[in-house]
Write a protein that binds this DNA or RNA. Structure first.
Lengths: 236, 236
DNA sequence: GTTTTTGTTAATGTAAGGTTAAATGGTAAG
DNA sequence: CTTACCATTTAACCTTACATTAACAAAAAC
């Protein structure tokens, strides 16, 4: 699998500071989603798949702590960093109680932020068993090499797969004969769950079905409203 | 099984406040049923299946306490939260005596309400053994896979089931050879008990009977005015 | 025997999924 | 700088799946 860009959710209501910070992080090879308030932040969090959340503490409607708590309920793993203007001790305590991974006082040195981000990502990378590391699959008569992105049928011709084709087929293979929820592929591969990504996914399902037609025992079934199922019949 | 939306019954006679609150909760991903007085509240409670009740204490004809008592008679589990304008101590006591889970004084911070709701739902989620987790059933010669929604007869052809077919058959299977009350399926699956949902359920019973005809030892019997019974005869 | 409940089939409306082609956007070659 | 190519998204349109409602028949209760 190619190195995915690390994704950061930045929730910051100050438009100037937020934009500057977003640009700075983008320039340093992070993919940044910027939400302008707590509500928006939570919505975006639910729809995406983030490696780190940076939350401003002081926000108008929903403060950073409340947001952090909501995020923690959905996901116990994702690292959270708080930004705060004033360094009040009780706030810091509150933050760590909610499961903060770090704390930064505004104004802060942007390089310090980068280093901290790097450190946090690495720390997490180690103790995360991470989404299965399996990259080779036997699917009926096919062999999928997900690292090199190709599919072979009975040792014959290799079909090259595009990145999306590859990841989608891999995710189906990880759930062989079982349900692969639509939502899972959308949040993990497309990193967004909406009408258009869903349409896009259908296009890719069609492409995969075309490839898999070679083996009549392999098919991708739809489970209406739930997702897809890669089934392999053994009628040998 | 997919995450069901949590359902809230809101009983509040003030139309303005009620509507605003309903909208606010809806925006936060709750499915809200709004009743404008105690009578209506009780009717709707009986017909639906709610995860939480929010009751205004001061209501014209039937006050919140009386309503709460009636609700408790029907269901000892469902969490109840009272809304009250004045914070009179004896009222609070009365509320807890009726089995309140929490108390909120108007005007209240809407975020506080959200947090309390979440906390209560979680608390309940833990001590609820939750509706059976069984998803595979043997019904005479049939195998029902309720997660992937299909029915197999003697290991042969698979029939795909629609979500409603699947849930209904699963509920029948959970009560195999016993009465499955009409009302149970309607409140649990259709989440509403009225003439039309009842007719709809009959339609689904007919569909299931068609599927089950393959095995002469399996049938769905009606118990007039009560419900249905999935019987498996062992005349081997 | 009349009313209520249930059985069954068909009609309707809506949402989800399937398919194809064109638009977009990035990247490498010319 | 322009062109050509590729992966992906967007758009349009079509098909299928599903749930509800209607309409009428049959059975049970009263």
């Amino acid at each position: 699998m190619d190195e995915q860009l690390k994704r950061i959710l930045l929730v910051e209501d100050d438009p100037n500071f937020g934009t500057v910070l977003k640009d700075y992080l983008s320039m340093n090879d992070y993919e940044v989603t910027h939400a302008k308030n707590g509500m928006e932040g939570f919505e975006k969090f639910k729809r995406g798949d983030f490696d780190l959340c940076i939350l401003d503490v002081m926000m108008p409607y929903k403060d950073g702590f409340t947001l952090a708590k909501e995020i923690r309920e959905k996901n116990a793993e994702v690292p959270i960093v708080f930004l705060t203007a004033k360094a009040m001790k009780e706030d810091v305590l509150k933050g760590y109680k909610v499961g903060a991974d770090d704390y930064l006082n505004k104004p802060f040195d942007s390089e310090v932020l980068l280093m901290k981000i790097k450190a946090i990502m690495q720390r997490k990378a180690n103790d995360t068993v991470a989404d299965s590391k399996q990259f080779e699959f036997k699917i009926g008569g096919f062999d999928l090499n997900s690292k090199l992105r190709f599919l072979t049928y009975n040792g014959g011709e290799q079909v090259k797969l595009s990145p999306k084709e590859n990841e989608l087929l891999r995710m189906l293979a990880l759930h062989e004969n079982d349900l692969m929820p639509r939502e899972l592929a959308l949040t993990k591969i497309w990193r967004d769950d909406n009408y258009f990504t869903s349409r896009s996914m259908d296009v890719y399902i069609a492409k995969l079905r075309k490839y898999l037609k070679l083996d009549p025992n392999v098919e991708i079934l739809n489970i209406h409203g739930e997702g897809f199922r890669l089934v392999v019949n053994q009628n040998d």
